[in-house]
Computed example of a mutant assay.
Amino acid sequence: MTEEKVQKQATKEYGPYEFKLEGLEDGYRVTFKGNKEEIKSQRRVGASFINFLRQAEKAGWPIPFPFRLLLKFWSEYNGKGEKVG
């Protein structure tokens, strides 16, 4: 993996969370940091919602556009996405 050059960076703390936006030579990187246990809990809730969307799609229910987009990106992230680390 090549070292990415950060051209600009902004960091902001909001409550217990830290958000960082980095401008790279060929794109952007967004990083969120917070309480590890709370983030795990939120990921479980998010995964449950994604599972609900999958089941609704299989059942033929109409899925609104933003949720279809979310489902598409999630499928790519879990299936074909590049493994890091």
Rank of each mutant, 00 (worst) to 15 (best):
M1G: 15
K58C: 11
F52L: 14
K12L: 03
L70M: 09
L69I: 15
V84D: 08
R43N: 13
P16K: 01
W61V: 15
I39H: 06
T11N: 04
T31N: 01
E57D: 13
S48Y: 09
F73W: 11
V6D: 06
S41C: 08
K33G: 02
S41W: 11
T11S: 06
G60P: 01
M1L: 14
E13H: 04
V84L: 11
F67Q: 04
E82L: 15
R44D: 08
R29K: 08
P66L: 06
K36L: 06
Y17G: 07
I63W: 07
G85A: 08
E13T: 10
S75G: 08
F19N: 02
Y14K: 12
L71T: 01
W61E: 14
E82M: 14
E13M: 06
E57R: 08
R29T: 03
E4T: 04
G23Y: 00
V6H: 04
M1P: 06
N35C: 02
S41Y: 10
G60C: 11
Q42V: 09
E38T: 08
K20P: 03
P66N: 10
P64K: 08
P66K: 07
E82Y: 14
A47R: 14
W74D: 06
K8S: 03
K12P: 00
I63G: 04
E82D: 15
G81F: 07
F49H: 03
K36Y: 03
G34Q: 04
Y77Q: 07
R68C: 11
N51P: 05
K83R: 15
E22T: 00
M1V: 13
A56G: 14
F32Y: 14
P66Q: 10
F52M: 14
K5G: 04
L21Y: 02
A56R: 09
N51Y: 00
V84S: 07
G79Y: 05
G23A: 06
G79W: 00
N35Y: 05
T31Y: 05
F67N: 03
G81R: 02
E38Q: 12
E37C: 09
W74F: 12
T2V: 13
F19S: 05
E37G: 08
F65P: 12
L21N: 05
F19V: 15
K12G: 01
K12R: 11
S48E: 12
T11K: 06
Y14F: 13
E3Y: 09
E13L: 05
E76C: 08
S75M: 06
K72F: 13
G15R: 03
K72W: 10
Y14L: 14
L53H: 00
G60M: 09
F65A: 13
K33Y: 01
Y14C: 10
Q7S: 03
V6F: 03
K83A: 14
G60W: 06
K72Q: 12
R29N: 07
E22F: 02
N35I: 04
N51A: 09
G23M: 02
G81K: 04
Q55N: 11
K5P: 00
T11F: 00
T2F: 08
E13G: 03
K80L: 00
W61F: 15
S75L: 05
K83M: 12
I39A: 08
G15K: 01
S75T: 10
P64C: 09
E37I: 10
L70A: 02
R54F: 06
G81S: 13
G81D: 09
G81E: 07
V6E: 01
L21E: 07
F67A: 05
K72M: 05
P62W: 15
P62K: 12
M1H: 11
L53Y: 02
G27L: 03
S41V: 12
V30G: 12
A10P: 08
G15N: 05
